[in-house]
Write a protein that binds this DNA or RNA. Structure first.
Length: 608
DNA sequence: CTAGGGTTAG
């Protein structure tokens, strides 16, 4: 049996010989048709697949292709550029000689058309070919792991990286950090990042984005500051990542600083940066600034429009969202499914039932956008809030797309508003079958029972949660004061000003009660963990944050707070009273939407 | 032939 490698080498030798022989026998002044450079420049001029195939045929016939690796690689590359990966692969198959460039073009080609299976298969062949791996192919295949969320493959390739001594290459490591982060292994990402001998701008950007992605926007912003301290100068892409972190964090002050920096650096407001900034301002509670950015942008695409429509939606401005949608259609930008989710959501949170129904029915007929489960979820929410629960239920029963936990969750939420216990039990059953590990679902059902005074059922749910080892998600509230973010949990005593905060809270509650505030103990009774204890109601994280905001900012300053869960009913009432008595406008971002409190009223109309 | 960027329900 002949060793394949020896065979391969013999073969190579033969072709080299032929090559020499040919150049010896050919005319000294070779005509353009035998000059590889001639074909390479021809290839770059190709504008369609047909032209590429023609050049391919010519070089195959005159024998140039098999003996000129540069030419073959270029041809391979041009095929991949035109997404003709099948043609590329058949050329790849007949290439007698391959170098790292050929392999990386082929591996990258499969990744480009999302054919990850062949991407990995080709990479494995590359490794087995004994050819040396380089820092071109590895980032490509690592990114394929990220895009398929295949962390096991990612770890495997990480080993390969070590084997080839490429664990210090900035391209390779940045790709690995990104892969770990997007696969949810933030600790592995951080560890790699910390060990990097030299962190360049891209690795910083990847790491900053990684933290924002995993929900730790705070750390993300801290990392950005550290990067600046190390004199790494951010570019526009880095700024988009930071803008994104500000949006997730809801950090208004930081947002302003970031905007100022972008302006100072003269970064042009392109469609991506602009869209990100709209999102940032809107999620920091400043709809006007978001709109200013929107109006300033010269190029707007579907994402820009959708971001602005969504912003109006979660600020409770349904009419504005609808108006913007018609302008969008007038301007010729086609809506996509996300545009419709944002639009229906806006209708639902503004109580625009008929408009929502009209849009829902027109999606496919007028705009060729298919309804998916999220659109149905918005409709369930829309009908449910309006008390039309039977219609919502019928919609769910008749729909032909697959139902998910979000859909049942919306139905359950609507049942809570309207105290529909039997429907709630039906929805909860379906919900828990799909997702039995989410404590939020149990809490919601328990709240429904509590509101109806069915304490035995409340106890049953609590028992079930204990049995399944589920704990209610901890609630956090953030408030930004003097460019610093302060975080509070329920009953928090860790803040430096804790004493003053509780004193303030005591005074506030006294004043509020005189003004007619009655604590809603319902919200104490159906909490499932420590919050159960009497008095805990007074120290909900949003109340602490507000008390702190009142003592740490000048009179009349608006307070902006962010909460990771939905604001509780008692806190909602409490904040309404505070806005009137302390004469402050208070802007609360909860897990779902914004509440603008002003003079004793909330923009959500107590309907959230 | 390489790495990093924006919108969506509950």
């Amino acid at each position: 049996m002949v060793d394949p490698i020896t065979q391969h080498q013999t073969h190579l030798q033969t072709t080299t010989n032929i090559n020499t022989l040919q150049s010896e026998t050919s005319i000294p002044q070779s005509p353009p048709s035998l000059d590889p450079k001639h074909y390479i420049s021809q290839l770059f001029k190709c504008r369609n697949l047909n032209q590429i195939t023609q050049v391919h045929a010519q070089v195959a016939v005159n024998g140039l292709l098999l003996h000129n690796l540069t030419l073959a690689n270029k041809l391979l590359y041009i095929y991949v550029q035109h997404k003709a990966v099948i043609d590329a692969h058949s050329l790849f198959g007949v290439m007698t000689e391959k170098d790292p460039v050929s392999w990386s073009v082929m591996v990258g080609g499969f990744a480009r058309v999302c054919d990850y299976l062949n991407c990995f298969v080709t990479f494995r062949e590359y490794v087995r070919s004994g050819e040396c791996l380089d820092n071109y192919t590895l980032p490509l295949v690592i990114r394929a792991c990220r895009d398929t969320m295949d962390i096991n493959m990612g770890r495997l390739i990480h080993h390969v990286v070590h084997k080839f001594g490429l664990h210090s290459d900035p391209f390779v490591v940045a790709a690995l950090v990104d892969m770990y982060a997007k696969c949810g292994a933030i600790d592995d990402a951080k560890q790699l990042f910390d060990k990097m001998p030299e962190r360049d701008l891209v690795s910083w950007t990847v790491m900053i984005g990684a933290y924002a992605e995993c929900g730790n926007a705070n750390e993300s912003l801290a990392l950005f500051d550290r990067m600046r301290e190390e004199d790494v100068i951010p570019d526009k892409v880095a700024m988009v990542t930071v803008v994104n972190a500000c949006a997730k964090m809801g950090a208004m002050h930081k947002a302003r600083l970031v905007n100022e920096y972008i302006w100072r650096r003269n970064f042009s407001l392109d469609v991506i940066l602009g869209s990100a900034m709209i999102d940032m301002y809107a999620k920091c509670g400043n709809l006007d600034s978001a709109r200013e950015i929107f109006d300033k942008m010269r190029e707007k695409n579907v994402i820009t429009w959708s971001a602005m429509i969504a912003a109006y939606g979660y600020h409770g401005k349904g009419r504005e969202a609808l108006e913007l949608f018609s302008s969008m259609l007038t301007s010729g930008v086609l809506p996509n499914r996300i545009t419709f989710v944002s639009l229906l959501y806006a209708c639902s949170h503004a109580g625009l039932v008929e408009e929502g129904l009209r849009i829902f029915n027109s999606m496919w007929e007028d705009h060729f956008v298919r309804r998916d489960v999220k659109h149905y979820t918005c409709m369930v929410d829309l009908l449910g809030r309006a008390g039309r629960l039977n219609e919502a239920f019928n919609l769910v029963e008749d729909m032909s797309v697959e139902k998910d936990e979000g859909l049942w969750g919306a139905l359950l939420g609507a049942c809570r508003i309207h105290n529909r216990i039997e429907l709630a039990e039906k929805a909860a059953k379906a919900l828990l079958e799909l997702q039995s590990q989410n404590p939020g679902h149990y809490v919601l059902l328990s709240n429904i029972y509590a509101k109806a005074g069915r304490w035995e059922d409340v106890a049953k749910i609590r028992e079930l949660m204990t049995h399944r080892r589920l704990k209610k998600n901890p609630g956090w509230t953030w408030i930004e004061v003097d460019n610093k973010i302060h975080r509070f949990s329920v009953g928090d005593h860790t803040h430096g000003w804790s004493k003053e905060i509780y004193k303030m809270l005591e005074m506030l509650i006294e004043k509020l009660e005189l003004a007619g505030y009655v604590p809603d103990t319902n919200f104490v009774l159906h909490d499932v963990d420590e919050e159960l204890k009497q008095g805990m109601l007074y120290s909900h994280s949003e109340k602490l944050a507000i008390a702190f905001g009142l003592i740490s900012t000048p009179e009349g300053t608006p307070l902006r707070i962010t909460k990771n869960l939905r604001v509780c009913g008692d806190c909602h009432t409490f904040i309404k009273f505070v806005s009137a008595i302390a004469k402050r406008s208070i802007i609360v971002r909860d897990a779902n939407r914004f509440h603008h409190f002003e003079e004793g009223a909330c923009s959500c109309g107590d309907y959230w």
